[in-house]
Each structure stands twice: as structure tokens, then as C-alpha cells.
Design a binder for these strands. Structure first.
Length: 434
DNA sequence: TCTGGGGTCCTAGGACCC
DNA sequence: TCTGGGGTCCTAGGACCC
């Protein structure tokens, strides 16, 4: 493609979407240089199915969601390296990557574990195609140098177009990982299939196609008002965004969480109440830790319990039950107690359960908790206890000190047979050099 | 034996009020 | 036989994201 001249623009803001290619697989490879060019797949919790693949693994035909037990022989045959997912490692690598982005701009929204939006306002600097491409390459190069992770950069004037640009950068190797999408680039928009547009799901696709909307350009050309009345306000925004009119801001200030979920499948199906109770206590404990880490307190707690939706021997059972606290809390003991109460409401004897989750809602700032007239006790003591507990677990490792309710046998725990070491967060996991 | 986990936003509909 | 209308708040569930 030929750009006749570097075109200056009067847009005052540019947005970059930077994401790490094959993030989980790439994280595993960083610490295992011997796996260069070796196909890698990373499995979901419980080693159930494939959730990440290296380029080599994609070329071998492995798909997201492939069942591990089905593809196991082929994995061995093709010499594909398999990992259980290691979120301690991925989360830490994610933090490092974002730290590097912050050298380029302070306007960062961490959108997901492997994607961030970066905002570049003019600030006197007039960006053009050439300088923006250079900026993208510089980000790519710096991240690669300091973390060993490969990233792609898409740059445009709205988040949705930055997503489009990122996709183009990723799909076309000749752009060398960076693509700047100028808002009036109709030819490129035409190339993007409607189901590849951010926010357009599989369900929505056929409905749009029925209206003759097959490409991103078709959607961009649609009447926003008609889209709103025929669909919803979210899709209307997409139309504007595709036309370079920004409706979605880069959220640089992390908004406080509105809910916290801790939910996991069991390592095997369980029917015994006591084991499920232990899992619930452990999940409630984890939820409490998350809550306190963000200085929040929960007004509501609910749990959901279900059997396997794929089971052939019994009907699918799924039930949730929740309570509202008299006063917002972040105390593990109270969370466990409430969670167990809820569990009793949904547990039926004789079923084989697959998964249980604890959900905290109605989150508020822990400082400003509304005191209830019904609870008159000294909360200073229990707060101090929680702080000591959190400090110990932070410095000596998770679960150094914990509540007896979560059990010690952990019969309910998920399978992670092929997990890699927590290279970056645990000294004890580093290989010993002799 | 075996199918992830954690989030947000929007909408519809019910309860309730004046 | 007639059976308002409009507003708010809350909840459940759907849809979507990575």
C-alpha cells in the first residue's frame, strides 16, 4: 500500500489498542526459551479445554475449546507442549507490560489481562501517519526488549476503530505489528466482516445480515436512529464509533468494582455436603481477600451451585440463593457464615455437583460503611484481625493462615497437572541453579 | 472421567408511589 | 361496565467481552 503523503490531522486524540499476541502461550514461552518454535497450548482451569494457543499450535489446527482428553493423543504426536493455566504468572506479566505502556502515556485503560487502551492527546504534538506508526513500533520494541512478549498495536480515533486497526495489524504480517487506521478509510472497513467487529456477537450477526449489513462499512453507513430502535443503544454507539465519533472514553481511572465472583469447577463431581461446604468457605475467603484488597465491603452475598450442564445421567440442576447483610462487611468469618447459610438453601442431597460460586454484590467503599442500628459490636478488633491475616498471607504465601472451614484435605480442588512455576512471584518456584 | 472464570451493561417487568 | 398514567427503584436475565 502506498501512502501518497504523511497526512496531518486535526484530531486532538488518538487511541491505541495494544495487546499481547497469544498472551498465555507467550508468557509460558518467555521462561522457556527451549520452546521457541514449539507448538504450545494452555488449558482452562481443571485442565478441561484449550484456551490459548501459540502460532504453531494454531497452524496444527488446534481450536479454542478443544477438549483436552479428546486431543491428547494428537498433542503427543505433534510434540505440542501443554500447560495448565497459571494466573499468578500471567497477572504479573500483565502488570509489567502495563508498566511499560505507562512510559509512553499516562492515559491507560487496562481493558483485560492482555489488552490496554492508550490515549495520546495532541498536547501540541501534531501526529500524522508516520509519527503514529513510529510510536507503535517503539511500544512494540520496548515491550519486547523488557518482557520478551510480542505485542500488536492498532491506532485510530475511537476505541472501536483502534480494535479494528489492531486486528488488521495482527492479520497482516507485512504491517509488522502496527497499523494506523485513519477514520475515513472506507476500503479497509469494507474488508472487515461484521462478526469481526468488537461487540458484534454470533447471535447478532444473522440479524444484521438480514438487514444487508455484512461488513463494518455497512454498519458504519447505517442510520444510527434506526439501529437504536431496531436493536439497542449499544449498537447505536458502535455506528458512531465506526465513523470516528468517539462515544466510549478511555477509562483512565479504574472505577470501583461493582461485584466480585469466585467460582470454580471441582476436580471431580461431588455430592457430599461437607466437601462442597469446604469449597464454599475457600471461595468466600478468596472473595474476602479481593474485597479488602480493593478497600470495599459487600452488602450482598449469594452462591450458585450446579451440576454439569453436559451430564448425561442426571438432569441439569442450577440454583442460586442470596442474602443481604444488615451492614456491609468484608470480614471473612461473616462471609463464610453467610455463604454456608446460602449453600444449605440450594443443596439437594443425591446430586453430583460440578461447580460452586460465591458472588459479592452491592459493593461500597469500606470507609463509609453505613452502621446498622442492629449490630452493635466493636468492629475495630475484627478489622485488625483481617489486616494481620492479609499481611501474613501476602508475605508468606497464600493460605499460610486460614479459616478451618475451608478444610485441609481439599478434595474439591481443581486439577492443574501441568502448571508452570510461578517464576515472577515466588522465589521458591525458581529453578535451582547448580 | 473429562467442556474456564470473571466481569459489565442493558432491558423488561414487577412493586410501589402519587 | 368501567378499570389512569407516569415515575422510580429493584431484580433477574440476556448479551457481550476477554
Amino acid at each position: 500500500m502506498i501512502f501518497s503523503q504523511a497526512k496531518t490531522s486535526d484530531h486532538c486524540q488518538w487511541i491505541a489498542l495494544v495487546d499481547v499476541n497469544n498472551f498465555y502461550a507467550s508468557c509460558e514461552r518467555v521462561f522457556r526459551p527451549d520452546l521457541e518454535n514449539v507448538p504450545i497450548v494452555v488449558l482452562s482451569n481443571n485442565d478441561g479445554c484449550v484456551i490459548a494457543r501459540s502460532e504453531e499450535a494454531k497452524r496444527l489446527g488446534y481450536k479454542m475449546g478443544d477438549l483436552f482428553h479428546v486431543i491428547k493423543p494428537k498433542l503427543r504426536q505433534t510434540g505440542t507442549k501443554v500447560f495448565s493455566s497459571n494466573y499468578a504468572l500471567y497477572g504479573d506479566m500483565s502488570d509489567r507490560v502495563n508498566e511499560i505502556y505507562s512510559r509512553f502515556t499516562s492515559g491507560i485503560e487496562v481493558y483485560s489481562i492482555d489488552e490496554s487502551f492508550l490515549r495520546f492527546s495532541g498536547g501540541g504534538v501534531v501526529h500524522n501517519l508516520a509519527t503514529l506508526t513510529e510510536l507503535g513500533q517503539s511500544i512494540r520494541q520496548t515491550v519486547g526488549q523488557y518482557t520478551g512478549l510480542p505485542v500488536c498495536v492498532g491506532i485510530s480515533t475511537t476505541k472501536t476503530l483502534a480494535k479494528v486497526a489492531n486486528r488488521i495489524a495482527k492479520k497482516n504480517s507485512h504491517y509488522d505489528g502496527v497499523f494506523v487506521f485513519e477514520p475515513d478509510n472506507k476500503a479497509q472497513l469494507q474488508q472487515i466482516s461484521i462478526d469481526d467487529v468488537w461487540g458484534i456477537s454470533r447471535r447478532l450477526t444473522p440479524k444484521l445480515q438480514a438487514l444487508g449489513i455484512y461488513s463494518a462499512l455497512d454498519l458504519a453507513s447505517a442510520d444510527p436512529k434506526r439501529i437504536r430502535s431496531g436493536f439497542n443503544v449499544v449498537l447505536e454507539r458502535m455506528v458512531h464509533e465506526l465513523n470516528g465519533i468517539s462515544c466510549l472514553a478511555v477509562e483512565e481511572v479504574v472505577p470501583p468494582r461493582k461485584s466480585i465472583i469466585v467460582s470454580r469447577g471441582f476436580g471431580r463431581y461431588l455430592s457430599e455436603f461437607s466437601l462442597i461446604q469446604q469449597a464454599v468457605a475457600a471461595h468466600a475467603t478468596r472473595a474476602g481477600e479481593k474485597l479488602r484488597k480493593q478497600q470495599l465491603a459487600a452488602n450482598k452475598l449469594s452462591i450458585s451451585l450446579r451440576t454439569s450442564p453436559h451430564g448425561k445421567d442426571q438432569v441439569y440442576y442450577k440454583k442460586s440463593f442470596g442474602i443481604t447483610f444488615a451492614e456491609a462487611t468484608s470480614e471473612t468469618a461473616l462471609l463464610i457464615k453467610a455463604a454456608e447459610h446460602c449453600l444449605r438453601k440450594v443443596y439437594r442431597k443425591g446430586l453430583l455437583y460440578q461447580k460452586v460460586g460465591v458472588f459479592l454484590g452491592g459493593l461500597v467503599d469500606a470507609q463509609g460503611v453505613q452502621q446498622s442500628i442492629f449490630t452493635q459490636k466493636d468492629v475495630t478488633k475484627s478489622k485488625a484481625l483481617m489486616r494481620v491475616l492479609d499481611d501474613l498471607n501476602r508475605s508468606h504465601g497464600r493460605d499460610t493462615v486460614r479459616f478451618a472451614a475451608s478444610g485441609i484435605d481439599e478434595d474439591w480442588k481443581m486439577r492443574q497437572k501441568m502448571i508452570s512455576p510461578r517464576y515472577t512471584t515466588r522465589w521458591s518456584d525458581l529453578p535451582v541453579v547448580r
